[in-house]
């Protein structure tokens, strides 16, 4: 079949090493107090790692156009879940009630 793509081993190794380096940075950042930035950095690294896994290990980079579309659809649905759930949590306190979670 034409849509099977053989990825050279050195690319897998490079991605794996990058993931390891990013993991090491995540651990290192945990020992440095950046305030609120700690979470931003860690989530940023996590997103970068997930992107590498999806693109290379899951072959989304090499599929037809439908494959990235399906993957993006999945993430878009995750955004719907997060977005509407946050619409509750972020606006609960507007009437002054608040929740244990917010306090």
């Amino acid at each position: 079949m034409s849509d099977i793509h053989v990825v050279p081993v050195k690319i897998y190794v490079a991605v794996f090493l990058t993931l390891m380096v990013l993991t090491a940075i995540t651990v290192a950042v945990a020992f440095v107090d950046l305030g609120a930035l700690n979470n931003v950095v860690m989530l940023g690294i996590a997103v970068a790692k997930a992107t590498l896994v999806v693109l290379f290990f899951m072959h989304v980079k090499y599929g037809t156009r439908l494959v990235p579309l399906v993957a993006a659809g999945g993430f878009f649905w995750l955004l719907i879940l997060f977005g509407f759930t946050l619409s509750d949590y972020l606006s609960r306190g507007w009437l002054g009630a608040g929740t244990p979670w917010m306090r």
């Binding site: 649905w77 719907i80 509407f84 619409s87 509750d88 949590y89 972020l90 606006s91 609960r92 507007w94 009437l95 929740t99």
Partner: peptide
């Protein structure tokens, strides 16, 4: 997928989310 909060009108969900 955009309507699930209508099961939660009396759950303590924000009234603004409830309206949406």
């Amino acid at each position: 997928f955009l309507v699930w909060g209508h099961h939660m009108f009396v759950s303590g969900q924000s009234v603004y989310a409830g309206t949406a």
